[in-house]
């Protein structure tokens, strides 16, 4: 049997996915900490202060990975949406609905830390800069997908509707982004941007990459936790949940003996 097809059926089965995710979670958490701790230490302590922005540039180590992740999560959702619509894989729908709040949170974190960063740098909490505006629109798209899923009671329909909206979003996001950039350059002078500089110093870059990797594992960690929770919630009355509970009970009884 083709290995891809085998994986496809296996990943489609909650009974198989649920314990696997449970086994993976501690490892993913360990990897997250492995990247987070040196990333935070290097970013907050050993990286040199910026010659223009002083110490306040350090918020970048949360802001930039969060902003990257808010886009990465959407991309992952879009791929899952194709899988969900074309091959009707239910786990892909579970993945999307578990990823939506995470992506929205990353977008919100990016916006809030951006505001805290903007206050000392630009002298304003918020400016209608192209990047900020696109990030805000992205947050609203996430919230729209979440609202649509919650509004539809039948979760099979909700999953399909949400996948369609996710795909509509992925076609539109580049258009929205570039039109906002275009609008912004027309209406106001370019604002201060850290990344327009030709390069970022290597001592500052390493912690940033470490933090970006840590955020990837954080996403995976929360995603696995949320997927497990969503699966149990939706399938409370189905056979595989009962089987897992019975297995767990048997295991605990064995420990007591």
């Amino acid at each position: 049997m083709n290995i891809l097809i085998k994986w496809y059926y296996r990943l489609g089965a909650p009974l198989w996915f649920y314990p696997l995710a449970g086994k993976l979670i501690p490892w993913v958490a360990a990897l997250f900490l492995l990247f987070l701790i040196p990333g935070l230490y290097m970013g907050l302590v050993t990286a040199p202060a910026d010659y223009q922005q002083g110490e306040s540039f350090r918020i970048m180590y949360v802001h930039v990975p969060a902003a990257w992740m808010s886009m990465f999560v959407y991309l992952a959702m879009a791929i899952a949406a194709v899988v969900a619509l074309v091959w009707r894989v239910r786990m892909a729908e579970i993945m999307i609905i578990s990823a939506v709040p995470i992506g929205a949170s990353f977008a919100l974190i990016a916006l809030l830390t951006g505001a805290f960063w903007g206050k000392p740098m630009w002298g304003a909490w918020w400016v209608w800069d192209a990047r900020l505006t696109s990030e805000l629109i992205l947050l609203f798209i996430y919230l729209g997908i979440l609202a649509l899923y919650n509004a539809i009671e039948d979760k099979t329909t909700a999953g399909k509707a949400m996948s369609i909206l996710t795909l509509v979003g992925v076609v539109n996001l580049p258009i929205i982004h570039y039109s906002v950039v275009w609008w912004n350059t027309l209406h106001q002078a370019a604002t201060v941007s850290v990344f327009d500089k030709p390069s970022i110093h290597i001592d500052m870059l390493i912690p940033l990459l470490l933090m970006a990797t840590a955020f990837k594992f954080l996403f995976l960690l929360i995603l696995l936790l949320k997927m497990r929770a969503n699966l149990i919630e939706q399938d409370v009355h189905s056979g595989w949940v009962k089987k897992i509970i019975l297995d767990k009970q048997a295991e605990m009884e064995k420990e007591h003996d």
């Binding site: 629109i137 919230l143 729209g144 509004a151 539809i152 369609i164 539109n172």
Partner: peptide, 22 residues
């Protein structure tokens, strides 16, 4: 997407407005 829903009046703008921006 929202046509079969009973309470959809507030939902439609949420879904549609971001895509109107360009």
């Amino acid at each position: 997407l929202t046509t079969g829903l009973k309470k959809s009046s507030m939902l439609l703008p949420l879904l549609v407005l971001p895509f109107y921006i360009p």
